[in-house]
Structures are given as C-alpha cells and as structure tokens.
Amino acid sequence: MRKDENTRQHIIIKSAELFNQKGYAGSSIQDIIEATGLTKGGIYRRFSNKDEIAVEAFEYAGQVLMEQLSSAINNADTAIDKIMAVCNVHIDPVNNPPIKGGCPLLNTAVESDDTFPILRDRALAAYEEMLSLVQGILKHGIAVEEFRSDVDVDSLSSFIVSSLEGSVMASRLSRDSKHVGFVMQQLRVLLNTYIKI
C-alpha cells in the first residue's frame, strides 16, 4: 500500500472509532485532526469533507464487524450455534465491543436521519445485510432439517436482529452487559422450539 493510501486508511480507521464513540454530529474536523495526528491539509488532501469521511468510516466499521461475525459463524456447527455465535460477538458491549464505541450499525441507525440520507442509506443496507446473514443461517437450518420447514424466516430473523441490537443498546445504556446474555438465553429457548423432531 502506498503512503498516501496508508494515510487515507489511517484517517478512515481513526474516524470510524471517533464517530462510533462521539457520533457523526458530535465529531468535528478538529476531532478528526486530533484523532489522526494529521493537519487539516492532510485530511482535506484525501477527503473533500466530513461527510465523505463518515461514509467511508461507516463502511470500514461494517466490514470489521462482518469479518468478526463471519469468523464466529465459521467456528460453529449447528444453525442454533451459528445464531448464538452472531450474538456472542456482542456479548460484552460495555467493556469489549466488537468495535471501539459499540455496534456501528446501532450507533449509526440511531443517529442517522433525513439530514444525512447517504449515511442513513448505508446504515439501512448494513441492517439488511445483517438480516440476510441471519436469514441464511435459518434457511440452511431448515435445509439440513435442523429446523422445521414451517419456520417464518423473515419474522424470526427480524426478531433475532432486533432483539440483539436492543440488548446491545440496553447494555450500553445501563453499563451492564447482562442484557445481551438475557437475549441469548431467550433466543436459545425460542430456537429450540423450532428444532425438527
């Protein structure tokens, strides 16, 4: 990687952490300068504005999270274990989040609104990717006859992702990661009701 590309990647990584902790609206170009150790010119030689940095930083954070999820899934055998592995990536969002500052999907989804439609669209795409990941696990579970064929994949995957993201929010808000554990416990009970006998 060339030095200019390395510097650009450095800005993206540091900005992803910054935005994930302080939010996009709460972070200034000066914050990016301080986080990266670069000058204003060093930032603007590589990005035209903060919006461009935010979009690339979110994409980077999403890639990091998806790599962690893929790794966790690949180390699990059954569909239930794979769903639990997805949840387990978020097991300690207070002290050990998958990315510094918490779940980038949750943080960006909460902050994004009509004032930054591009970032909102990226957050929506990331949410749909997460749903698709869970749907794929459930469909595979049906195909290999781990789950019954009458599982409503769309409904169940939405419930799983919504429950997980809600538990991450509750854990970060209360500064107690037990909420993710509670959701995992209840999801395992629920998923066991769909096991094909």
Rank of each mutant, 00 (worst) to 15 (best):
10 H>K: 15
192 N>A: 12
129 E>K: 13
100 K>E: 10
33 I>Q: 12
38 L>I: 00
127 Y>V: 10
32 I>H: 06
141 G>F: 06
107 N>W: 05
133 L>N: 09
190 L>V: 14
52 E>Y: 08
15 S>I: 06
46 R>I: 05
123 A>K: 15
196 K>D: 12
193 T>F: 11
137 I>W: 03
88 N>W: 02
28 S>Q: 10
147 F>D: 04
105 L>H: 00
30 Q>K: 13
124 L>E: 11
132 S>D: 06
9 Q>L: 15
179 H>F: 14
112 S>N: 03
47 F>T: 00
20 N>M: 07
45 R>A: 09
70 S>G: 08
2 R>P: 09
154 D>T: 02
191 L>R: 03
192 N>K: 14
178 K>E: 13
176 D>A: 00
25 A>H: 14
113 D>G: 08
143 A>G: 04
104 P>N: 04
14 K>W: 05
26 G>E: 11
85 A>M: 15
79 A>I: 14
163 S>M: 06
106 L>E: 05
183 V>P: 08
96 N>P: 01
57 A>F: 02
184 M>L: 09
163 S>N: 04
74 N>L: 10
160 I>V: 10
70 S>N: 10
51 D>V: 00
19 F>P: 11
91 I>K: 02
53 I>G: 03
92 D>T: 00
39 T>A: 01
10 H>P: 09
54 A>D: 07
95 N>T: 06
5 E>Q: 15
162 S>Y: 00
2 R>G: 08
188 R>Y: 08
37 G>Q: 04
52 E>L: 10
86 V>F: 07
105 L>V: 01
29 I>K: 02
60 Y>G: 01
